[in-house]
Write a protein that binds this DNA or RNA. Structure first.
Length: 584
RNA sequence: CGGGGCGUAGCUCAGCUUGGCUAGAGCGCUACGUUCGGGACGUAGAGGUCGCAGGUUCAAAUCCUGUCGCCCCGACCA
């Protein structure tokens, strides 16, 4: 590819709304342009990266025995209603009414449609296992798009769905995809960790997340020092906190006037205490009958909605609206407390952390009042028909799991695999006949990879002050040939020859034949981050030499003109070497 | 959805507080000349309904109202 007429689109200035390195660099290097909030156009250079990632994913999926299909992005709402996921997804689900009055969903994922497609094609156990995948655009009406393509409304996802006869087969399919994912990320040159994860809107029984650790990530992963345990924070389990030694005699509860102090911090300031001594109580509603759930956690702890959902057997609770909170507690929001509250609600979850407290402060269920000297177990019960002491909070600094200290790290989720079980196949009729001719429901798994996120996380992992440093496997080009003196005929002739020879060797090469000053071309080269650069210039050509530089190394190397292509080929091979996955 | 901020040239922004001359700078773009290995320099030029709509005023980019868009923070608060 010659760059003279190529839409390169590099810019010097950082757009004011780009905060994280990958977003800034993708715009500066001319990979993407913003069209609207959370929607981006890919320019030629960026699309080349996308294509390379897709090709790696496709190869690995095919190698794993999956078969590529293409599903519609616009899908009938009825299918989503059948599984109830129109509700689960809530506002994030993009949809519109067509001219016939039919409701359509803009696919954020495709379990429903793929299950129907699979159901139509699968009839016998002899066909199983089957794995169907697609790579196409997904749409999510994100509440708050940000970080460039890391959280955009539109994005490109590879989504695969396995249809299996039984648990054992599902386990194999799951493992198969899991291994394929390891290959994909390795080949793309992004370092990742695998953590246990919650199934979220997908439902199902087991899930792992592939996460690229980096500061700009939105996810938090939790792990033990020895890495024996790693999980997303939404899933991470914590050991119960060991009980504080009970203070011999705590005086009876005292009511304290705390005007205008609803929030934990302001109450603490007022009471001259710390959040660890506070007992938070939150009111939720859940289920079709809008039952009331009270959750009690320590003031410094964060409630984990996923754990609540699990504890309720898969029903996601919602924070109670103000009027319900007032009706239940008799106070404004901010003054709920556990004492005397439990007979007014249908269900109570108390976190281990609260049960372990010797004494603390809590809301008084009376506007503008808190109570002190609250002793869990004395002033409110820790067991009962509708009272459970369980783990309902996020892991926090200082927590342990199985006695081992938990550590925290941010990361970008680039892939996730789920065991769905029969959640979709049952509702949408994905069945097969077994050996005895009996009708059986398929078990399913689903497996997603965020293509754009791989692109962004590769940049987050590898850049410097001058620009991007791509892994060769997903770089827009493998090699850049450039001329330092574009008006020198000999220089141009030599560069042209190297370019042609590299093309003949099936190298993906760009030739910067622009009539620009050397400085401009070097700056652009560094910015767009092609792994290998060959510079032909008067300065070295007088000695019959050209300059070869690996982007991520600081020093360049001079080689004889006639050795240039061979040396480049060697270096390219070397760069590829570390991205190769060994076959079993 | 709540709080804050911002909409002025393709991009980054100044000007607005305290209304007043032809609305500016840098980058980018065009032409010419000099330059030519780490984002050159000079000269000349193109490019603007100052987000949109209304209002106040002799006069509005500037003040007021509404509206649209964008960005940041929060939205698990007790």
């Amino acid at each position: 590819m010659k760059l003279d007429k190529f839409i390169l689109g590099t810019v010097k200035e950082v757009p004011s709304d780009a905060e994280i390195p990958s977003h800034q660099l993708m715009i500066r290097s001319g990979m993407i342009r913003k069209v609207a909030s959370g929607t981006y156009a890919y320019l030629p250079l960026g699309l080349r990266v996308i294509h390379k990632i897709i090709e790696i994913v496709r190869q690995e999926m095919d190698a794993a025995g999956a078969q590529e299909v293409l599903l519609p992005i616009v899908q009938p709402m009825e299918l989503w209603q059948t599984t109830g996921r129109d509700q689960d997804y809530g506002q994030t689900l993009g949809h519109f009414t067509d001219r016939h009055g039919r409701e359509n969903v803009l696919s954020p994922t495709a379990e429903e449609v793929m299950t129907v497609v699979g159901a139509n094609e699968i009839s016998s156990y002899k066909q199983l296992p089957v794995n169907l995948y697609q790579i196409n655009t997904k749409y999510r009406d994100e509440f708050r798009p940000r970080f460039g393509v890391l959280r955009s409304r539109e994005f490109i996802m590879k989504d695969a769905y396995s249809f299996d006869a039984d648990e054992i087969m599902l386990e194999q399919s799951y493992r198969n995809m899991y291994d394929a994912y390891c290959n994909v990320f390795k080949r793309c040159g992004v370092e990742y960790v695998i953590v246990e994860a919650e199934a979220g809107e997908m439902g199902g029984s087991g899930s792992h997340q592939f996460t690229v650790p980096c500061e700009s990530g939105e996810d938090v992963i939790v792990y033990t020092e020895d890495l024996a345990y790693a999980a997303n924070i939404e899933k991470a389990a914590v050991d119960p906190i060991s009980p504080e030694s009970k203070t011999a005699d705590v005086q009876a509860i005292t009511e304290i006037y705390t005007p205008g102090s609803g929030a934990i911090d302001s109450v603490c300031t007022y009471l001259k205490t710390v959040p660890e001594k506070m007992i938070k109580c939150m009111i939720y509603v859940f289920g079709p009958e809008n039952k009331i759930l009270a959750c009690v956690v320590r003031g410094d702890h964060e409630l984990n909605p996923e754990k609540l959902t699990q504890a309720l057997g898969g029903v996601a609770p919602e924070l109670a609206p103000e009027d319900i909170v007032q009706r239940i507690t008799g106070a404004k929001i901010g003054y709920a407390g556990p004492v005397g509250l439990f007979d007014k609600v249908d269900m109570v979850f108390i976190d281990h952390g609260v049960a372990a407290m010797a004494v603390g402060y809590a809301g008084a269920n009376k506007t503008e009042y808190h109570i002190g000297n609250v002793v869990p177990g004395r002033d409110f019960p820790l067991d009962g028909a509708n009272i459970k002491v369980i783990d309902i909070r996020n892991a926090a600094q200082g927590d342990t799991w199985q006695g081992k200290k938990l550590l925290f790290k941010r990361g970008i989720e680039v892939g996730q695999v789920f065991k769905l079980g029969d959640k979709y196949s049952k509702k949408l009729g994905a069945e097969y006949l077994d050996e005895s001719g009996k009708r059986q429901t398929c078990l399913m798994g689903c497996y997603g990879i965020g293509i754009n996120r791989i692109m962004a996380s590769a940049i987050e992992l590898s850049y410097d002050a001058d620009g991007i440093i791509w892994p060769i496997s997903i770089a827009p080009f493998e090699v850049l040939v450039t001329t330092a003196n574009p008006n020198d005929e000999q220089v141009v002739a030599a560069a042209e020859k190297i370019y042609q020879e590299l093309l003949e060797n099936d190298i993906d090469v760009a030739y910067d034949d622009r009539n620009q000053r050397a400085g401009v071309k070097f700056k652009d080269a560094d910015l767009i981050g092609i792994p290998l650069r060959i510079t032909v210039g008067r300065k070295t050509l007088d000695n019959g030499e050209v300059e070869i530089k690996v982007r991520r190394q600081s020093e360049s190397q001079l080689v004889k003109l006639e050795m240039a292509v061979d040396t480049a080929l060697d270096k390219i091979t070397e760069l590829w070497q570390e991205l190769i996955v060994e076959e079993d």
